Structure formats: C-alpha cells, structure tokens
Simulated assay, not measured.
Amino acid sequence: MLTNQQAYRDYLQKEKNYSLHTVAAYLKDLSEFEQFLKHRDDDAALEQVAYGQIRSWVVELVEKGILNTSINRKISSLKSFYKFLLKTKQIELNPLQKHKSLKTPKKVQIPFSEKELEMVFDENDYPDDFEGIRNRLIIELFYTTGMRRAELISLEISNFSPYAKTLKVLGKRNKERILPLLDCTVALLNSYLEVRKTFVGSSSGNLLILNKNGHKVSETFVYRLINNYFSNVSEKVKKSPHVLRHTFATHLLNNGADLNSVKELLGHASLSSTQIYTHSSLSELKRVYQDAHPRSQK
C-alpha cells in the first residue's frame, strides 16, 4: 500500500504532470520538514502536524539565515502537500490555512518560475462557471501564446480556429500574426465558448473575452486579475500580463526554442524582415512551440 508521500509523488507526476525537477523540489522541501519534526519527536507524523510546529520550522530557517523568499517557497510546497491530503480526505483541516508569507524585499522584475506557474494553475480555485473558466483562460492565453494585453482584449471569436489549432492576433501597427495553440489551450477555449454562449447569449457580439456584464474587459481589469492570482504564489514585485509575456519567452528559450522563432511568436517589429519570415514557417513554429513549451503535455 502506498504511503501518503508516495501517493502525493504519483499525484504530482501523473495527475498534475509536473516535471521531474519540480516534483523533486516539492518532495525535498517535504522531506526537510519531516526531518525537522523527527528531530524533535520520533513519533511525529506529517499528517498530524499543527501550525505551531510549522511556525517553529520557519523560525529555525530564519535563524539559519535562509532567505525569506526561499522559506516562502518551502512553505508553498507544504501547502501543496496538505491540500492533497485534504483532497484525499487524509486530514480534515489544512494546518496552513491561515498562514501568511514572510515579507520579502522588493526585487528587479523577473519572469515567473515554472513552479510558480504550476502553482497558479493548481492551487487557485477556478469555479466551473463563466468567470472561473474565463479567468483561467486569460492566464492560459498569456502564458501559452505570449500575446500582449491589448491583443488579448481585442480578440474575436472568429480569430480562433479549433481545427487548425491557431489564434489570429492583431498586434502593433495593425500587424496580424497567427499563433499556434497547445491542445490544453484549445480545449479550454472550447469550454469557455460553450459557457460564454450560455452566460451571455448570442447578442454579445464577436469579442472573445467579456466581463460578467457581457461587455469588453478593460486593461485595468486584466492587470488586476493577473496580479491577484499571482500574488497568491509569487513574491515578485511585478505581477502583470507583461511579466507573463516575458515568462512565455523565457521558458521557451530555456527549453531549447530558437530565438528567432520565439521573437516571431511575440510579434516583435524586428522580425518583420523578409529574411526572418522565409526561414520561419508556421509549421516550423508549431513544431518548435509544441516541443519547447512546459505545458505542451498538459
């Protein structure tokens, strides 16, 4: 019979489809906390821990000189584990339910990590209704296409081709580009269109992303949505659609994508030359994109 930790590992690998690196990081943090508990009490069990014990671990980490950002990441790993135990009915109360992250100094703007993205897709509740599916779709589109905020707001339903798995975007200077879509993004778009039709009806026009009143969303709304969701998982100072755009590019490059292909996906003006376009066909972009994006297997 599997232990809770083994079941948790399988859950991360098979159900959440996390990378081996991310799974190892989660389990390492969990093991460190378990060692802390055993050092104080041989009979201590992760399933029976109280918040006071976790708080004591935090104090010990602070005294060892561990940075607050690193401590917050370790606690995030514990949160994920206890959420799993709660989901599988191994515990009745999450000991970290009311925990507040340690304060951290302001940092230079940097992209989100793969772990932070996995957390924002995993640890936040997305209700199975119009607003819940729409919110998840907005985050998904930013992270899996790298589009700009203005581009997302102006998307029309007709821009989406479920069969070709593409999305046509109108960029700066009215320059159009066609973006390949991951299977998970296509599925989410289809789900959103179904609930959108039920929620706002056919009189809402052709705009893809709508607010709860059936109208066009504002730039402020989109910014606040991204900021709110990522505030739950990241201590970065800047949490915006533009950071997600940078994150998209960074993660593709880190996973081996060609720089010119990524720049074309982003629609940068420097890629408008004939030479660039003749060397980067849509089919090649699709291949690079599917192979390189962290969520391509979701």
Score class of each variant (00 low, 15 high):
A164Q: 12
S19P: 04
S56E: 15
Y8P: 05
N68C: 11
Q290K: 15
E284V: 09
K172H: 13
S296Y: 04
V200W: 02
R148M: 06
E235N: 15
V288M: 11
N94A: 09
F81V: 09
V49G: 07
S202E: 13
Y289M: 05
F130V: 13
S261F: 07
Q97V: 12
K238A: 15
E194T: 03
I75L: 11
L252M: 12
K298N: 12
L259S: 03
P111L: 10
E15N: 07
S202C: 05
E151V: 01
K89W: 03
S231C: 05
H293Q: 03
M1R: 09
N254S: 15
F81S: 06
N94T: 06
L253A: 09
E114A: 12
F230N: 01
R287I: 14
L193W: 00
I178F: 01
S280G: 05
E264T: 14
D125E: 13
K64C: 11
L93I: 13
V237G: 09
H251P: 00
H215V: 08
E219G: 05
F112P: 04
R224A: 14
R224S: 15
V237I: 11
N228P: 01
R9L: 08
S191K: 15
N159P: 02
W57M: 08
T69K: 14
S280H: 13
L266T: 12
K115V: 12
S56C: 10
F130T: 13
L78D: 04
F230P: 00
R287C: 10
Q290V: 14
Y26H: 11
L282G: 07
G214S: 05
L61D: 06
L30D: 02
V233E: 05
E114K: 12
E92T: 15
S70Q: 06
L2K: 11
V58A: 10
I71D: 01
K175I: 12
T22R: 04
L67W: 02
Q48K: 13
N135A: 00
L170Y: 02
P241N: 14
K87A: 08
K89H: 09
K238W: 10
E123Q: 14
F112K: 07
A45M: 06
K98N: 13
E156H: 13
T88Q: 12
Y143R: 04
G146R: 00
S273D: 15
S234Y: 04
E32N: 06
K216D: 09
V169S: 00
V237E: 14
S161G: 09
G214C: 05
E123H: 09
D42L: 14
N260I: 07
N211Q: 10
I133C: 01
L78V: 05
E176A: 13
E92G: 12
K89Y: 04
R148T: 08
E156D: 15
F248C: 06
A24P: 04
K107H: 11
A44D: 04
Y143W: 06
